[in-house]
Write a protein that binds this DNA or RNA. Structure first.
Length: 600
RNA sequence: GGGGUGUUAGCUCAGUUUGGUUAGAGUACCUGCCUGUCACGCAGGGGGUCGCGAGUUCGAGUCUCGUACACCCCGCCA
């Protein structure tokens, strides 16, 4: 409507950013390009909050403005893309908004040009309230405009920049590995990609660049890293997507200790840049066996206590039949003691007992310690020696509620570790600002499957045993298998595994022995890993590495509840992208080219 | 493969226990008013396949069965 002469192309090169304006810019005329965040039309005066990637700033069209400008301003709607031009000015003291980063200034509009209009957005961009997951994923481009998503994506950028800087400074080389690779039946299910040129053959997307990074060590690039997508076709969880990002590291001439120190330095830098706090290094370390004993899990949350205590000895001669029979068949008795804050009614305890049935738990015994005596629950089954044992084992002094279980070790550990976390949350024992890193070391090398009578690799088949366990390999039994430890380590943050790695086998002799224990024949090994096995014969250096889950690290550092909230374009639990509608059907022509027929 | 929660206006949610008049609220949207707002305010207005499909019933948002989708969990994830 205005007759002002405008250049064909707005002066993008002279752009200023909304969120970077401050009192030091007062008097300067600025060109702003951004989205209309809010419009407040008071009649004679109109306030517009304009938003770009740096934040928002108030643009004001005051009563003295030309009528055309006032009309243009009052016709603005949410999410219109505009070019605003005008001088920055300090606000009057009574007009300052201290809760806003740019609240001390505003831009007095001299012109406002609509570069593009917008439909009414399906949900508000300016509200901290999140729409439903489905709506957010369908309109992901709008969801990503919201403040918390902008923060997540930008901090993720900061995180990878920090990591690259650290790794570059520590003599790591960033090297790419193939995405189209060979399928290996071990581990997770592969995503397959049909080959057009090679009819009937398939590539697999990498579950991790494991073999290639080992090959790079053999090639002499003695420190490698890659921030890389990995793919696993398994069911999704809040912390598992079919494609996810690993920070993948591999070192030559290395001990677990060297790797752990480097990862500690890397994560400490990231935490400093993302959260602005210093993480104490080195991180605490626990062995796998210690973890299972004290927490019932290999990824314990150490932000609170409520540790598990083994009670087998106390109940060795118990008259309580449930415990007696569990111990008789090789089970274990463990328990946790929780401050009794009066919330443990019969109903809440029954509810907890019900929740652990998913782990196979058949029951949950409780007993209350009042401060000087036991009361309720299984009190009547407890002898004096057992009572004294419990007081001593748990260090009971004040009122406590004891949760006791007798069952197979796995059931007891799964159930009690779940209860430990659940009760800690209920009682508010967890400091949500804390970042408790932990190394878990000395994992078992193998796991025994009684159903098939075979051994499997806990980490992967290239993991080196600890030197002291080599002899046991020659007479391995289901009884002593747990004593064979791997040079493998996980890094845990607040009860979530955020990374894991190992020292690799670098000689063919040991590798063959491991394959044979795993029931992998020479032919099979050659068919699957021949290039690695052959490469090991050409002067493979001692090497090892680790991979960190970038999505999980970001989720935890930003206190989000799902890795979906730190991934720009995540998939739903059924593996679909609600925005692009992947996966989709393809044409018969495409299938024919690939020599593929689908079955109903 | 299994268990659980949810699905009502564009969005966030009440209403479902105990079936019963025309299904509500906040917000967003539209119209008008408003000269310092920043969750602007005031007045008015439009907006519903109660996820979908069957069934029970005189009558279903509400009860039953099936089903779709989203989320959480078990299995799975070297």
């Amino acid at each position: 409507m205005t007759e002002q002469k405008k250049p064909d192309v707005p002066p993008f090169a002279e752009r200023s950013y909304c969120g970077e304006l401050g009192e030091s810019n007062a008097g300067k005329s600025v060109h702003l390009f951004g989205w209309v965040h809010t419009v407040r039309d008071l009649g004679g005066i109109i306030f517009i909050h304009l938003r770009d990637v740096t934040g928002t700033v108030q643009v004001v069209v005051d009563a003295a403005s030309p009528q055309a400008l006032k009309e243009a301003a009052s016709s603005l709607k949410s999410e219109f893309v505009v070019h605003a031009l005008g001088p920055v000015r300090k606000r009057a003291p009574e007009a300052v908004n201290p809760s806003h980063p740019t609240g001390t200034i505003e831009v007095l509009a001299e012109s406002i040009e609509v570069l593009n209009d917008s439909l009414v957005p399906p949900f508000p961009i300016d509200s901290p309230e999140q729409p439903g997951e489905e709506t957010r994923l369908k309109y992901r481009y709008l969801d990503l405009r919201r403040d918390d998503m902008q923060e997540a994506i930008l901090k993720r950028h900061t995180c990878v920049q920090t990591m690259r800087r650290y790794l570059n400074n520590h003599r790591f080389f960033e090297i790419e590995t193939p995405t189209l690779n060979k399928s290996t039946p071990e581990g997770a299910r592969d995503f397959l990609v049909p080959s057009r040129i090679n009819r009937g053959r398939f590539y697999a997307l990498p579950q991790s660049p494991q073999l290639f990074k080992q090959i790079l060590m053999i090639s002499g690039f003695d420190r490698y890293y890659q921030i890389v997508k990995c793919f696993r076709d398994e069911d999704l969880r809040h912390d598992r997507q079919p494609e996810f990002t690993q920070v993948d590291l591999e070192f030559s001439f290395v001990t677990p200790d060297i790797i752990m120190r480097e990862v500690e330095g890397l994560l400490a830098d990231v935490v400093r840049d993302i959260r602005g706090i210093d993480v104490p290094c080195p991180f605490p370390r626990l062995t796998y066996d210690q973890c299972m004993e004290r927490f019932g899990t290999d990824a314990p949350d150490t932000r609170f206590n409520l540790e598990l205590r083994r009670l087998d000895d106390i109940f060795a001669n118990t008259g309580f039949n449930l415990f007696k029979s569990a111990l008789a068949v090789g089970g274990t008795v463990k328990g946790i003691a929780v401050p009794d804050n009066g919330t443990f009614s019969r109903k809440t305890v029954d509810q907890l007992a019900d929740e652990i049935r998913r782990f196979g738990a058949k029951g949950l015994a409780t007993v209350r310690f009042t401060g000087d005596a036991f009361d309720g629950g299984i009190t009547k089954f407890l002898g004096d020696g057992e009572k004294a044992g419990l007081v001593h084992r748990f260090g009971l002094s004040g009122p406590m509620m004891l949760f006791l279980m007798a069952d197979a070790a796995a059931v007891v550990n799964d159930s009690l570790s779940y209860l430990r976390l659940k009760i800690a949350r209920q009682q508010g024992l967890i400091d949500e600002d804390a970042l408790n890193f932990l190394w878990v070391t000395d994992f078992p090398l193998f796991e025994y499957d009684p159903e098939t009578g075979s051994y499997g690799a806990v980490h992967h088949p290239f993991t080196a045993p600890t030197p002291g366990c080599l002899e046991t390999l020659d007479h391995l039994t289901p009884e002593n298998v747990a004593t064979v430890k791997a040079q493998a380590y996980d890094v845990v943050l607040n009860g979530s595994e955020i990374g894991g790695g190992s020292i690799r086998i670098h000689t063919t002799g040991i590798q063959s022995r491991i394959f044979s224990i795993l029931g992998i024949s020479d032919e099979e090994a050659n068919e699957k890993f021949s290039f690695l096995l052959e490469a090991l014969r050409f002067g493979a250096p001692p090497h090892g590495g680790i991979a960190l889950g970038l999505d999980r690290v970001m989720m935890l550092l930003l206190k989000r509840h799902s890795i979906r909230d730190v991934i720009a374009f995540p998939k739903t639990q059924k593996g679909q992208c609600l925005m692009s509608d992947a996966p989709s059907h393809v044409s018969d022509h495409q299938l024919a080219e690939l020599s593929i027929k689908t079955v109903k």
